[in-house]
Amino acid sequence: MGDEVRKDQLGHRKRLRTRFLKDLGRAMEDYELLELILTQAIPRGDVKPLAKQLISYFKSYAGVLSATPEELQKVEGVGEAAIVAIKLSQQSALRLLKQEAFKGHILNNWQNLIDYLQAAMGREKVEQLRVLYLNQRNHLIADEVQNIGTVNHTPLYPREIVKRALDLSAVAIIIVHNHPSGDPAPSQEDIQMTNMVKDAGSNLGITLHDHIIIGHNNYLSFKTQGLL
């Protein structure tokens, strides 16, 4: 009986791989893609129930990939190997998006930039402040997370941002932070601090191109909204 079960499981895994290779997974359900990821980490057994449980627990496929190792560990059946496989998939996607976003002139590659920032920050549980430092051709010099805060606040220090820009010989910057609430509407403090960074930079020849606030599935551009 045990041998028959194992053969059936191996056959199911092979069928999943075959289906994936037909169109690289485009027609597959989210739980099936996650199931394939888990088969790389869990060599034996039926991982379909675990894949479905994870998607149910974290509400979506993206939610699973974005979950922290500590959060994933709370789900029974998820060990170190499964966590590595899941987070490796997320990191691979982020690197692909990042390379597409920062290929050449950033301002001419806007949607790719937003896609990357959404994937990198849209599901974070606390606020992060990210600064993109650019050269004269608006090519990326550095993409750095400057500060990590709380669920509704992260510190922004204009002097530190400008000093770092000078250290990198950057001539322009883009500030990005996320709102874990999902609503990208700026607070009065967001507006005030943005103006402080703009003023501090302009005195030293550093242009603030934009301040982007990332929500769950949306974003706000200070430039587009006439706030900068």
Score class of each variant (00 low, 15 high):
His177Val: 06
Gln188Ala: 09
Glu160Gly: 11
Ile212Ala: 06
Ala185Phe: 12
Asn138Lys: 13
Lys163Phe: 07
Tyr133Met: 00
Asn138Trp: 03
Gly201Tyr: 04
Gly215Pro: 04
Asn135Thr: 10
Leu129Arg: 08
Gln128Ile: 11
Lys163Ser: 14
Asn218Asp: 14
Asn218Glu: 13
Leu204Tyr: 09
Ala142Tyr: 00
Asn217Gln: 15
Leu166Thr: 09
Tyr157Gln: 11
Thr150Phe: 11
Gly205Ile: 09
Asp167Thr: 12
His153Tyr: 15
Ile212Thr: 08
His179Met: 07
Leu168Trp: 06
Asn147Asp: 12
Val197Cys: 08
Ala170Gly: 08
Ile141His: 00
Arg137Met: 06
Ala200Glu: 15
Thr154Cys: 13
Leu208Ala: 01
Thr154Tyr: 09
Asn178Ile: 08
Ala200Gln: 12
Gln128Tyr: 15
Lys125Pro: 02
Leu168Tyr: 12
Ser181Val: 08
His139Ser: 10
Thr207Glu: 15
Gln192Lys: 14
Ala172Cys: 06
Asp167Phe: 10
Val145Asn: 09
Ile148Gln: 08
Asp183Met: 08
Gln128Trp: 11
Leu140Glu: 07
Asn217Ser: 15
Pro158Asp: 09
Glu160Thr: 14
Gly205Lys: 12
Val151Cys: 02
Tyr157Lys: 12
Arg159Cys: 07
Ser181Glu: 11
Leu204Gly: 04
Thr154His: 08
Asn135His: 09
Thr154Glu: 02
Arg137Cys: 00
Ile161Tyr: 00
Asp210Arg: 03
Lys163Trp: 01
Leu168Glu: 03
Val131Phe: 04
Thr150Arg: 10
Ile214Lys: 05
Gly149Trp: 07
Leu134Gln: 05
Gln146Trp: 06
Asn147Ile: 07
Ile214Asp: 03
Leu156Asp: 04
Val131Asp: 02
Asn218Ala: 13
Lys198Phe: 06
Ile212Met: 04
Gly205Ala: 03
Asn147Phe: 12
Thr194Val: 05
Lys163Thr: 14
Asp190Arg: 10
Gly182Glu: 11
Asn147His: 14
Ile191Pro: 03
His177Asp: 05
His211Cys: 05
Lys198Leu: 13
Asn217Pro: 04
Ala200Leu: 14
Gln146Ile: 15
Gln192Cys: 05
Tyr133Asn: 02
Asn147Val: 10
Asn203Val: 13
Pro158Arg: 03
Arg130Met: 11
Asn178Arg: 00
Arg159Gln: 13
Met193Cys: 00
Val131Lys: 08
His179Asn: 07
Ala185Gly: 04
Val151Met: 12
Ala170Ser: 14
Glu189Met: 07
His177Phe: 01
Asp210Phe: 01
Glu189Cys: 05
Thr150Gly: 07
Leu204Gln: 14
Lys125Asn: 07
Ala170Arg: 02
Pro184Trp: 08
Lys125Phe: 02
Asn218Lys: 13
Thr154Pro: 01
Asn217Gly: 12
Leu208Pro: 02
Gln136Asp: 13
Ile141Thr: 00
Thr207Met: 10
Ser181Gln: 09
Ile141Gln: 02
Leu156Pro: 03
